[in-house]
Amino acid sequence: MPPITYNIPASMIEMYRGRNLIVRTDNLSELDKSLTPEALKNIVYIELLTLKDSALQNSQIYNTPLDLVVSDPVRDLPRLYNYTQWADKHPVRVSVPVVPGFVKTVKLATALNFAVKLIPGQPDSQRVEEMADVLNFYLRQSTVSQPVEFFHTMLFAFYNDNPLNLWTVCEENPFQYRYITDQGRETISARFTDTELPDDLNTFDKTFIKRLCDEASECLNCEFFANCEAYFKWPNRDFSCADVKMLLRTLQEAAAELKRDYAASTNATEKKPL
């Protein structure tokens, strides 16, 4: 099993020395000043929580992958342009919550060659409609060259018949990621910071997910359970998945279409006279 990656506030770097880290900060300059080259080696990426700081060129963190966490898509939209120069040095990802205004942010982020991670939460019908628009954009638009998650990995999971699930894709699988709150409590991810989880995170799959499914019976007969495992049933177990299932179905169909295209092109090559 790969070592766990800890998502920690910048103030706790010393405490987590030697572990794989995702470091949260809202001030790149301060983080840059405080980091030793040793500590920098263990940073998988930096999560920038407020997009006020522009790119810090000529700094030791300039070569570190960066995750721009959008909190207000409308306010943060023009600020994405401040980070274009990072993308030439290393991967830049934009994490976008599925809230009003997120579509423009996703489109600009992909236009700037940034990868995108959608933070879906429990989206209402209107937001799912917009997610469907983004999914169509991701699948069909020739100018998109970077992944839009969770679509990208799920597409290939469906393509490869791989039971990779959304907890993992969204970096919320506690066997791979742990989120350390600003108070130092260990939990699953940012959406669990306000909840005291009764279970031991080491038995997450056997206890927490099982209970979610028991309480949300929709999951029991869900065609997507292998790839979802009740991901959308937190925090509200009664959330209806009718709309999000449509998204997953579109991804499944796109994967099937890809397979057909691939098979057709392979057949064509095989039939070609030498």
């Binding site: 939209l77 023009p78 600020r79 342009y81 401040n82 423009k104 489109k107 600009l108 992909t110 236009a111 700037l112 060659n113 638009q141 100018t143 998109v144 060259s145």
Partner: peptide, 23 residues
């Protein structure tokens, strides 16, 4: 430097299929 950030808020560029090229 600030021009594309202003345009993205006031013009229809975010809706454009070719934003990735033109900005």
């Amino acid at each position: 430097l600030g021009r594309p950030g202003v345009l993205i808020q006031k013009e229809e560029c975010p809706e454009c299929d070719y934003l990735a090229i033109c900005h």
